[in-house]
Design a protein around this nucleic acid. Sequence first.
DNA 1: CCCCGGCTGTGCACTTTGGAACACCTGGCG
DNA 2: CGCCAGGTGTTCCAAAGTGCACAGCCGGGG
Lengths: 220, 220
Amino acid sequence: MPRASRKPRARFNPQTYLDAVGGAARSYPSGATIYSQGDLADRVFYLRSGHVKLAVVSSRGKEAIVGMLGPGEFFGEGCLAGQRQRIGMAIARDRVSVTVIPRRTMQRLLREQHEMSDLFISKILTRNIRVEEDLVDLLFNSSEKRLARALLRLAVYQGADAPPMVVPAISQETLAEIVGTTRSRVNVFLQRFRQLGFIEGRTTLRVNASLLSVVLADPM
Amino acid sequence: MPRASRKPRARFNPQTYLDAVGGAARSYPSGATIYSQGDLADRVFYLRSGHVKLAVVSSRGKEAIVGMLGPGEFFGEGCLAGQRQRIGMAIARDRVSVTVIPRRTMQRLLREQHEMSDLFISKILTRNIRVEEDLVDLLFNSSEKRLARALLRLAVYQGADAPPMVVPAISQETLAEIVGTTRSRVNVFLQRFRQLGFIEGRTTLRVNASLLSVVLADPM
DNA sequence: CCCCGGCTGTGCACTTTGGAACACCTGGCG
DNA sequence: CGCCAGGTGTTCCAAAGTGCACAGCCGGGG
């Protein structure tokens, strides 16, 4: 193989390798639980299509969202670091299809396929950075700013023409869990943003990114 | 080499490999800044001895501690995921010696040395889990519980005889930054813990682990 | 021996947040 | 057509947390 080329991983499809080692395809309907807290942790998942939320529930019922993943991401990788049980749960947010790789297979794959391990490391590091960002966000910013940040992150660029980005329908309840606060609070802030013209619409809301980011800049 | 043996990484010294690729040794006095926010991110550090704190400062001066590292850990690895600038700072907490590896060298090393990449992945995943724990801790628990948790984590087992573990001298200010609250608050809780007999001593404080963990179990 | 800086002990006013309660809308379904 | 479920708009109060101010303690250096 031409591994002397300068950027060998410009387009690399991990699926090929995962299939080659016999990774099992599986799919879940929206809302299905892929694994839950306490389950045996002995495989890694590769998210082929759809979206997955990673959440943890506290002893007193509250739920916190620690990650929202899209296609091409890995999850359940804690087992590679010696974790025996899942410390959180993975829930399908829409129709999801994954490839399941047993722990040892994944370990072997990471050793034997450079590109695979490159990709994996880079994904993990990126997730790591993301979680750290969330941590400092939580430490530094008020719920209002965190909500603004979350909205900006959730918003997707809708074609080249429309500047107002759009947040794919999400309940205030879920927003609250992402931001780490209560629904009533989210509601109040959303209202405020609406009145200031930062967002509009009810279920799927349109976001004026440049306006909304004013909230973040604001001293307090 | 006998790589057929079942547990090849039982004792694996990464330092050998780091030296082999020309990793530069460097050392810092206590309190020195290893890198700071905004610096060019083009190398990875391997912590040979001493302790390092990873912190982020907000636009309004507050400082948050996102990690406390000990010997054998990597840091500054964000650059492997395409980060151009350091998003936080690394400070030596005592006399520290590190090995510095340029980004590309590290990437090559990770591809070519299985054990290296095994080790690295496992370290990164562990850190990841740790940060996620902190995140949910912050979301679920009150400052009091977080402080209790932090104390338990900081405490080190002092020889086989003495059940009371010991927290290596640390200022209330730093504790506050770790826990994510204010010093006055930390002070109050420490006082409370003292009165309940959970801890004793002033500068380096002795911790009664089993008693202190009562705080964590407590409903509220 | 005294002063100074750094850490600790404490009180207090002000803000933010959580949690719960209640009315309202809207779409689906019998 | 009326009911129900699930999400939304709104309000309120007590609990938790922040920021600040000020006093005390303690060790080291002039």
